[in-house]
Amino acid sequence: MSQATAASVAVQATAKRRRNYARRYVWFVVPAAVVIIAVILFPWIFTIYVSAFDWRLGGERRWVGFANYKQLFTDARFGWAVLRTILYTALAVVLPMLLGLIAALSFNRKFPLRGLARTIFILPMMATPVAVALVWTMMFHPQLGVLNWLLVQFGLPPSLWVYSADTVIPTLVLVEVWHWTPLVMLLILGGLASLPVDPYEAAKIDGASPWQAFRYITLPLLAPFIVVALIIRTIDALKAFDTIYVITQGGPGQASETINIFLYLQAFAFYNVGYASAVVVVFFILIMGLAALLLWTRERVRIT
C-alpha cells in the first residue's frame, strides 16, 4: 500500500517536473500565438458576430439574430451552390486519387530519367494557379482553342467546355485534376517507398501473381497513406476558388457557382457581409464535419 502510494507520488512528481520543463518553452510559442490569434482566431469570432447582423458595407447595420441563417437555408441559390460543390468535390477527389495512384506506382519503378520525369510531373502543382487558369481559358475557346482542334483530330465532336452549363463543371474539374494529381502522387509515392520488401519475396516464393501481390500486400499496407491523401485532396477540392473564379466567375449564368464563389459574390460584389458571414460559418461547420468524418475513417483504417 505504502509502496503504491510512494510510486504514485513519484509518478506525480515526474509529471510535474515534465510540466515545469515544458512550461519553459512557452515563450518560444508566444509570438506565433499572437499572430494566430490576430489573423486566424479573431476573424472566426468576428465572423460569428457579424453573421448576426443585416450589414451592408457602406450602409447601416441591424441586429437580426439568426435571420441570416434562416434565409440561407431557404435560399435556393445557396442550395444549388452546395450541390455543385458536392459534385465538384466528388469528381475532383476521385479522379486525382485514381490517377495519382497509377502515377505513384509508375514512378516507384526504376527507369531512365525518372528524376526528370517526376520533376516535370509535379510542376503543375507548384505553378501559379491564376497564370495557368488564363492559359486554360484560352485553350477552352470554342472556336479558336487548341483543345477543340485536338478533339477534331481524334475524330471527336468539338465541345463548348466552360461556355456551356452542361460541361462547365467537368471542365473545371479537368483543370483541378491537372493541378493537384501530383500532390496525391507524392503522398502515395512516399508511402510506397516505406513498404517492407519481405512480404513480396514471400509472396513470390508462394507463386503469387503481380496483381495478387498488389491487391493483398501493397494496397492494405498503403491504405493509411491513401487515406491521408484522400483527406488532403477532399479539403483542397472544397477550398477550390482561384481557377473557378478566373475561368468562369461562377458562370455561365450560375452554372459553376460553388459555395466559395457564392461567398465571394455576397461579400465582395454585393457587400452583403452579414449574410456572407453566415455562409462562412455554415461552410466551416461543413468542412469540420467532413474532416472529422475522414479522420474517423483513418483511425478505422489504422486499426484494421
Binding site: V39, P43, V50, K239, F241, L263, V280
Partner: peptide
C-alpha cells in the same frame, strides 16, 4: 496547439477575409 494551426490549413482563405477587410 499544432492541431489549431492545422485548422488554418483546412479552411478556405476567403473565410478570413470579411473581418480582416473590415
Amino acid at each position: 496547439a499544432a492541431a489549431l494551426i492545422l485548422i488554418a490549413r483546412i479552411t478556405p482563405g476567403l473565410s478570413y477575409l470579411i473581418p480582416l477587410f473590415l
